Amino acid sequence: DKHFVVALYDYTAMNDRDLQMLKGEKLQVLKGTGDWWLARSLVTGREGYVPSNFVARVE
């Protein structure tokens, strides 16, 4: 069951495990537990961690 989110804010990666994203960017959540979610950008195809409070679910 795939679940998708949209970035509510720009996020600048703090290290090489984070995923940089721009407000409005759509992401697929690969692992969504805790404060940091592993996601893949549908724009760039890159994977990394994003802060869960920076994204909102897309139905």
Score class of each variant (00 low, 15 high):
Asp1Thr: 10
Asp1Val: 07
Asp1Lys: 10
Asp1Ala: 08
Asp1Leu: 08
Asp1Ser: 09
Asp1Gln: 07
Asp1Pro: 00
Lys2Val: 01
Lys2Gly: 06
Lys2His: 13
Lys2Thr: 11
Lys2Leu: 08
Lys2Phe: 09
His3Thr: 14
His3Leu: 12
His3Gln: 13
His3Val: 12
His3Phe: 15
His3Ala: 09
His3Asn: 14
His3Met: 13
His3Glu: 14
His3Lys: 11
His3Gly: 11
Phe4Ser: 05
Phe4Gly: 03
Phe4Gln: 10
Val5Ala: 15
Val5Met: 15
Val5Ile: 06
Val5Cys: 05
Val6Trp: 07
Val6Asn: 05
Val6Cys: 08
Val6Thr: 13
Ala7Tyr: 01
Ala7Met: 01
Ala7Pro: 01
Leu8Thr: 06
Leu8Ile: 09
Leu8Met: 10
Leu8Phe: 03
Leu8Gly: 02
Leu8Pro: 04
Leu8Tyr: 02
Tyr9Lys: 15
Tyr9Pro: 01
Tyr9Val: 13
Tyr9Ile: 08
Tyr9Thr: 13
Tyr9Arg: 15
Asp10Val: 02
Asp10Asn: 13
Asp10Met: 00
Asp10Tyr: 03
Asp10Leu: 03
Asp10Pro: 08
Asp10Trp: 01
Asp10Glu: 06
Asp10Arg: 04
Asp10Lys: 05
Asp10Ile: 01
Tyr11Phe: 11
Tyr11Cys: 04
Tyr11Trp: 09
Tyr11Lys: 09
Tyr11Ala: 03
Tyr11Ser: 05
Tyr11Leu: 05
Tyr11Met: 06
Thr12His: 13
Thr12Ile: 14
Thr12Ala: 12
Ala13Asp: 04
Ala13Gln: 08
Ala13Glu: 07
Ala13Trp: 02
Ala13Lys: 08
Ala13Gly: 12
Met14Pro: 12
Met14Tyr: 15
Met14Phe: 08
Met14Glu: 14
Met14Asp: 12
Met14Ile: 14
Asn15Gly: 13
Asn15Ile: 05
Asn15Asp: 12
Asn15Ser: 13
Asn15Leu: 05
Asn15Trp: 08
Asn15Cys: 12
Asp16Tyr: 07
Asp16Asn: 12
Asp16Gly: 11
Arg17Thr: 12
Arg17Tyr: 10
Arg17Trp: 14
Arg17Ser: 14
Arg17Leu: 09
Asp18Thr: 11
Asp18Pro: 05
Asp18Glu: 15
Asp18Trp: 02
Asp18Arg: 10
Asp18Ala: 11
Leu19His: 04
Leu19Cys: 01
Leu19Glu: 02
Leu19Gly: 01
Leu19Pro: 06
Leu19Trp: 04
Leu19Arg: 01
Leu19Thr: 01
Leu19Val: 02
Leu19Gln: 00
Leu19Asn: 00
Gln20Phe: 07
Gln20Asn: 15
Gln20Cys: 13
Gln20Gly: 15
Gln20Trp: 06
Met21Gly: 00
Met21Thr: 06
Met21Ile: 11
Met21Pro: 05
Met21Lys: 01
Met21His: 03
Met21Val: 12
Met21Trp: 00
Leu22Phe: 09
Leu22Ile: 11
Leu22Gly: 11
Lys23Val: 02
Lys23Cys: 06
Lys23Pro: 04
Lys23Trp: 02
Lys23Asn: 05
Lys23Asp: 06
Lys23Gln: 08
Lys23Met: 05
Gly24Gln: 02
Gly24Trp: 01
Gly24Ser: 02
Gly24Cys: 00
Gly24Asp: 03
Glu25Arg: 00
Glu25Lys: 00
Glu25Ala: 01
Glu25Asn: 01
Glu25Met: 04
Glu25Thr: 03
Glu25Cys: 01
Lys26His: 09
Lys26Asn: 10
Lys26Tyr: 11
Lys26Val: 08
Lys26Ile: 04
Lys26Glu: 13
Lys26Gln: 12
Leu27Arg: 00
Leu27Phe: 14
Leu27Glu: 00
Leu27Trp: 05
Leu27Thr: 04
Leu27Asn: 03
Leu27Met: 08
Leu27Ile: 05
Leu27Gln: 03
Gln28Trp: 03
Gln28His: 07
Gln28Ala: 08
Gln28Leu: 14
Gln28Asn: 01
Gln28Thr: 06
Gln28Lys: 10
Gln28Arg: 08
Val29Met: 01
Val29Ile: 14
Val29Thr: 02
Val29Leu: 10
Val29Cys: 05
Val29Lys: 02
Val29Arg: 04
Val29Glu: 02
Leu30Tyr: 06
Leu30Thr: 03
Leu30Gly: 01
Leu30Trp: 04
Leu30Met: 06
Lys31Glu: 15
Lys31Val: 11
Lys31His: 12
Lys31Cys: 12
Lys31Ala: 10
Lys31Pro: 00
Lys31Gln: 14
Gly32Lys: 14
Gly32Trp: 08
Gly32Tyr: 10
Gly32Leu: 07
Gly32Ala: 14
Gly32Thr: 15
Gly32Ile: 08
Gly32Val: 08
Gly32Phe: 09
Thr33Lys: 13
Thr33Ala: 12
Thr33Gly: 14
Thr33Trp: 06
Thr33Phe: 07
Thr33Ser: 13
Thr33Pro: 04
Thr33Gln: 13
Thr33Met: 09
Thr33Asp: 15
Gly34Thr: 08
Gly34Ala: 05
Gly34His: 05
Gly34Pro: 04
Gly34Glu: 06
Asp35Asn: 11
Asp35His: 09
Asp35Trp: 07
Trp36Gly: 09
Trp36Ile: 14
Trp36Lys: 14
Trp36His: 10
Trp37Leu: 15
Trp37Pro: 01
Trp37Ala: 08
Trp37His: 07
Trp37Gly: 03
Leu38Gly: 02
Leu38Arg: 06
Leu38Glu: 03
Leu38Cys: 05
Leu38Phe: 12
Leu38Val: 06
Leu38Gln: 07
Leu38His: 09
Leu38Pro: 01
Leu38Ala: 02
Ala39Leu: 15
Ala39Phe: 01
Ala39Cys: 15
Ala39Asp: 00
Ala39His: 05
Arg40Tyr: 01
Arg40Leu: 04
Arg40Trp: 01
Arg40Ile: 04
Arg40Glu: 03
Ser41Arg: 02
Ser41Ile: 04
Ser41Val: 05
Ser41Asp: 03
Ser41Gly: 00
Ser41Ala: 00
Ser41Cys: 01
Leu42Pro: 06
Leu42Tyr: 04
Leu42His: 04
Leu42Val: 10
Leu42Asp: 05
Leu42Phe: 02
Leu42Met: 11
Leu42Gly: 04
Val43Trp: 11
Val43Ala: 13
Val43Lys: 14
Val43Phe: 07
Val43Ile: 11
Val43Asp: 14
Val43Gln: 13
Val43Met: 12
Thr44Ile: 04
Thr44Pro: 02
Thr44Met: 01
Thr44Trp: 02
Thr44Ala: 03
Thr44Arg: 04
Gly45Ser: 07
Gly45Glu: 02
Gly45Thr: 02
Gly45Leu: 07
Gly45Ala: 04
Arg46Phe: 07
Arg46Asn: 08
Arg46Ser: 10
Arg46Trp: 03
Arg46Thr: 06
Arg46Pro: 00
Arg46Leu: 10
Arg46Val: 06
Arg46His: 07
Arg46Asp: 09
Glu47Gln: 12
Glu47Val: 12
Glu47Ile: 09
Gly48Ile: 04
Gly48His: 09
Gly48Phe: 04
Gly48Lys: 02
Gly48Trp: 05
Gly48Val: 01
Gly48Cys: 00
Gly48Ala: 02
Gly48Thr: 02
Tyr49Thr: 05
Tyr49Gly: 00
Tyr49Met: 10
Tyr49Asp: 01
Tyr49Phe: 12
Tyr49Arg: 09
Tyr49Val: 07
Tyr49Trp: 11
Val50Ala: 08
Val50Ile: 12
Pro51Gly: 01
Pro51Asn: 07
Pro51Lys: 08
Pro51His: 04
Pro51Met: 03
Pro51Gln: 06
Pro51Trp: 03
Pro51Ile: 00
Ser52Tyr: 08
Ser52Gly: 09
Ser52Pro: 06
Ser52Arg: 15
Ser52Val: 09
Ser52Phe: 05
Ser52Met: 12
Asn53Glu: 12
Asn53Tyr: 05
Asn53Trp: 09
Asn53Thr: 13
Asn53Leu: 03
Phe54Ile: 11
Phe54His: 15
Phe54Cys: 10
Val55His: 00
Val55Leu: 13
Val55Thr: 08
Val55Ala: 01
Ala56Trp: 06
Ala56Arg: 14
Ala56His: 10
Ala56Asp: 09
Ala56Lys: 15
Ala56Asn: 10
Arg57Ser: 14
Arg57Lys: 14
Arg57Leu: 06
Arg57Trp: 07
Val58Ser: 11
Val58Cys: 13
Val58Leu: 12
Val58His: 11
Val58Gly: 09
Glu59Pro: 12
Glu59His: 09
